[in-house]
Write a protein that binds this DNA or RNA. Structure first.
Length: 310
DNA sequence: AAGACGAAAGTGGTTGA
DNA sequence: TCAACAACTTTCGTCTT
């Protein structure tokens, strides 16, 4: 949970001790766990309010010069070094001079490739920041996603795919690696690309970059769902226990982790007298009531959990 | 009236020929 | 590439609180 609270540097409060301040990621507020005081609300997304999908569009919408392009020495209007080994007067170059020209050419080509990668990255980072903020992701996750994306660009995986979908896939991979439970749907929701495309990119990234991703664990969803429903730590622990037991009995294979977590939460909430409706839980877990019910039935049956009747 | 339950039909993704 | 398949969703009727 700690990493979820690092989205922004913590503001200070005259009343609350710093260690009691937590970031409520759903509301975008800092709140004090002692007094309930809202310390800072409406955390501002500092990205541009416009979106650009192509370099041309970006050029048009941007109201200031691109900061990144300024750093490229020639600003895109570079001298082209001819391939001929002649000087301006048409004389052949002496061997020493030829080597020098050769070296220039090499650097020029490198610089060109470099700048195209940079342009791509600049745009991608824009997207990443936007989607990351919409998903309330912490800086650590966004950084991880950026790293993955950069590798993908360097491997040429973005060619022929939309930057957006590769960014989305990178974010998903980063979330999985950092154990931040986010479904593919949640991420794809904020992109023009559909879920299928993002999934394809994701698989490609995993394969090409050999990133190892731990199998997604229902327990990761427990904390998230629990927080969204405002459940106590004890309840979440109970839910985690239930999932642990279920895993040992082999009940979790092939099941949607979100659904499993939802059912575990439902049971745990009942056991700990913090009853939530199936509907509520299903909603925040991103599954249907029916799935919650099915998992619920399986779990209570197989684990022989007695639900105290009201 | 709202929530829980379950049956039946439909959907999208995976797997194996 | 196609069909079979398992998991999940949608929909809807019934029962319970």
């Amino acid at each position: 949970m700690v990493e979820e609270r690092q989205a922004n540097p913590q503001p200070s409060s005259s009343i609350c001790p710093p260690d009691k301040i937590i970031f409520d990621e759903e509301r975008g507020e800092y709140i004090c766990t002692e007094t309930g005081e809202v310390i800072e609300e409406r955390i501002i997304d500092q990205g541009p309010e416009w979106r650009a999908f192509t370099p041309e569009e970006k050029e048009k919408r941007s109201r200031v010069g691109g900061p990144l392009n300024q750093t490229i020495h020639d600003m895109g209007i570079s001298t082209v070094i001819d391939w001929k080994d002649k000087d301006a007067m048409g004389r052949s170059l002496d061997p020493k001079r030829r080597l020098e020209v050769l070296r220039w050419r090499k650097w020029q080509i490198r610089a060109r490739i470099q700048s195209s990668i940079d342009r791509n990255l600049a745009q991608a980072m824009n997207e990443l920041e936007r989607i990351g903020n919409l998903l309330n992701l912490s800086k650590a996750v966004k950084d991880e996603a950026a790293l993955i994306y950069r590798k993908a660009v360097e491997k040429g995986l973005v060619r022929g795919r939309s930057i957006e979908s590769v960014v989305a896939a990178s974010i998903y991979a980063a979330c999985r690696r950092m154990k931040m439970a986010r479904t593919l749907d949640e991420i794809a929701q904020f992109t023009k690309a559909n879920r299928k495309e993002v999934a394809r990119c994701y698989r490609l990234i995993l394969r090409e970059l050999d990133i190892d991703v731990p199998v997604s664990d229902p327990k990761d969803y427990v904390t998230r769902i629990g927080n969204l429903l405002g459940l106590s730590g004890a309840t979440m622990r109970t839910a985690a226990d239930i999932i642990e037991k279920a895993k040992n009995m082999g009940l979790t294979a092939g099941k949607d982790p979100a659904g499993l977590a939802a059912a575990a939460i439902y049971i745990a909430a009942l056991l700990n007298d913090e009853r939530r409706t199936q509907k509520e839980i299903a909603q925040v877990a991103g599954v249907t009531e029916v799935t919650v019910r099915n998992r619920y039935k399986e779990l209570t049956q197989e684990l022989k959990i007695q639900i105290p009747s009201q």
